[in-house]
Design a protein around this nucleic acid. Structure first.
Lengths: 157, 157
DNA sequence: CATATTTGCTTGACCAATCAAGCACCGGTT
DNA sequence: AACCGGTGCTTGATTGGTCAAGCAAATATG
């Protein structure tokens, strides 16, 4: 950590500057266009898609709210509200958790699974077209590792 | 565009899958931690910082709402509201545009400039620590280009 | 030159996320 | 067995953004 009282720390290099600006743009634009592609195509916003997807990858197609929220990068209350939206569409059902009566499981219904299968190609195409396409020729493994490091934030110290 | 009636398009490779998931995490985590770092440090949220920064880089330290909104990746109304927040803190002033009486200029005040100078090191440190650090050894130029491509979204067709 | 259309910005209504407070249940203590 | 701190989730209030409608000035058109 540079001393905050040091008036002028080393500024970013032009490369770094360009990368940071571009990332800013991507972070802003990508979710929106992917969401727009999917909504236009299949009427399923990205957040809801992500929830369904995570549920579907589980053996029993069910998950505790806690865990689902973490996987969807959502706060617990955010997750509650997403599940409620999905529930009213009949794509998810909620069941009390057997081994802990405080807990709930979000359960993917057949309708939900159908919806997911239906939306999947659209999501896949959007991700390829909007993102992966631009990284042809890169070492994806290395890139993924770097992003995993950046995405694993240590708490603010 | 793949035919949507084609039931099963080619799924993502493990590499691609990992990259996409990691990017999802980064997009979610990075703005929050950087924002948190800065707010904890200097009480200036990222959106407002970005606005001040863009204003400061202009010769007269002023800009039309339109242009500023684009640079900040914000809708015009979002920009209006951000500027209002900044105005009430005295960091920005609004002046009618001389050559077009419909238009407004957001003008960085001295207080705003001071605030920016004060926050800059904190922002810089956060960006390095949270992001750039993890990309040492990468070809930043190539990476920046790829992100610029991904960030330049063609309208949904 | 009067009127219609377009442009630049603000405002109103809304929405999805957050945090903080609340409620119900669990598990360990005495 | 009555309590009590901790846990799992929901709910209320707020926030920061969006889109759509509105208004005023500019510009194009008959």
């Amino acid at each position: 950590m540079p001393d905050p009282s040091a008036a002028t720390p080393q500024p970013l290099s032009p490369d770094e500057e360009a990368l940071v600006r571009a990332l800013g743009q991507v972070m802003h634009v990508l979710p929106r266009v992917i969401d727009a592609d999917m909504v236009g195509d299949r009427q399923l916003p990205l957040t809801e898609y992500t929830a369904l997807m995570n549920l579907s990858e589980t053996p029993e197609r069910r998950m505790r709210m806690n865990e689902l929220a973490a996987l969807c990068h959502l706060s617990l209350s955010g997750m509650t509200r997403t599940i409620i939206r999905l529930e009213t569409q009949g794509l998810v059902r909620r069941e009390r958790c057997e081994e802990d009566a405080r807990g709930w499981n979000a359960v993917l219904t057949d309708a939900g699974f159908a919806r997911l299968t239906e939306s999947w190609p659209s999501h896949l195409a959007a991700v390829r077209r909007r993102f992966l396409q631009h990284f042809e020729g890169f070492d994806l493994t290395q890139l993924a590792l770097a992003f995993q490091r950046a995405g694993t934030a240590e708490p603010t110290d």
